[in-house]
Design a protein around this nucleic acid. Structure first.
Lengths: 214, 214
DNA sequence: CTATGTGAATCGATTCACAGCC
DNA sequence: GGCTGTGAATCGATTCACATAG
């Protein structure tokens, strides 16, 4: 487990966890790299290579024990214990994310919600009162918040990111369409929804290349 | 332009478009591969290689003309003309996406919204009345809808996807956490928000590897 | 005989080095 | 001089082939 993990591998670990959980819920006790690969449209070798970056979880001639593999994958992802998350920005997208049930189901708990709009502060969003940004640092430290979801307008994103970093957050999931500067020990991952749609459009165009200008 | 485009290149084209637009709005007339690369944290060579997959848009000694490059990038992405999009699923996330202003700003227009919940049908979400799923096929064809955003529960996703395909949609942006089966001429792109958060958590853990179990 | 784990080989993407144009 | 476009070289990721364990 102590070499550097390929980026491509990292992006597949949570896929593995999700599919093995599904598989187990369907009543299976074990799963082979072949079966897991087929579900995900990968190769069996790729699945095994990915997993062995973190340890040897399977048994030759048998496969992987679902329960054990799930435990290990959660350990890898750090979701064996619940992680506290702050959500900043209570627009339409922010409110949807605040109540997105899958975060809670997968080991992340949104424990504080912030906005800087006085009309929103004090309102409830899901189970949480929206708090003023000025409380950000104190609340993050008090509630042991290590990750943040950023759903504010692009113009405000860098400022909020700086404040989150100052508040001791280690990772930021950024829904604004700007690159964020952050110190090297803080991870920023940007989800640009409009670009996802653009890329889908491009993929469609290339697949139908000459065919028609669909 | 007629070799196969690397997947990695495809995923960067919309980044280029966005940054060149910003750059132009800041009053610049031209941009060099070096400047664009710095903004995005890439190398100048990579930017040039990516662009030349689609044609030769720059002039040696000068750089790229912003206006011309933007025009070409939109042509590549197919957003030179507005594309009609259907949104299926009016839960919290669906409603946020239905009114997400950036889609409209970048050449995509949500022209129809569907749900199968009778209590939601007829309500307005942004400028659109929520329609029953039974109208899906007729509306998609009538309004020349080529792309769809799928924001329904995982259990319903495959069924809806099948109906979208039957309705002549070429691409599906899927927010449900399931792999969707679709014919090879239909592109499915899945955005799994909870997995984004898991991957962020993993990246954080690996960056701080031994340090502390943040 | 079945399925994992892994070094070696292949494949694809990034970077280098430079030829050609402004 | 400055910068693009591109073949050659490097780097990383996937696949192959097989040794090893159940």
């Amino acid at each position: 487990m102590r070499d550097t993990i390929p980026k491509a591998t990292m992006s597949r670990i949570s896929l593995y966890l999700h599919e093995v959980e599904q598989w187990q819920q369907q009543g299976h006790e074990k799963i082979s790299s072949q079966q897991l690969a087929e579900i995900l449209g990968l190769t069996a070798t790729q699945v095994r290579k990915d997993l062995t970056h973190f340890g040897q979880f399977g048994r030759p001639g048998v496969g992987y024990h679902c329960g054990e593999l799930i435990r290990q994958l959660r350990l890898i992802l750090g979701t064996d214990r619940v992680r506290h998350v702050a959500l900043v920005g209570c627009g339409n997208l922010g409110r949807a994310l605040a109540t997105y049930p899958r975060f809670e189901k997968r080991g992340f708990s949104i424990v504080a919600v912030f906005d800087n709009d006085p009309r929103k502060i004090g309102r409830k969003v899901g189970p949480h009162k929206v708090q003023d940004m000025s409380h950000l640092s104190a609340v993050c430290r008090q509630k042991d918040i290590t990750l943040a979801i950023l759903a504010v307008p692009a113009a405000a994103a860098q400022d909020v990111a700086d404040r989150l970093v100052a508040a001791g957050v280690y990772g930021i999931l950024n829904f604004a369409i700007v690159g964020l500067a952050a110190p090297s020990d803080v991870v920023v991952s940007t989800v640009a929804l409009s670009m996802e749609l653009e890329q889908l459009g491009l993929a469609v165009r290339l697949r139908h290349h000459g065919t028609r200008d669909a």
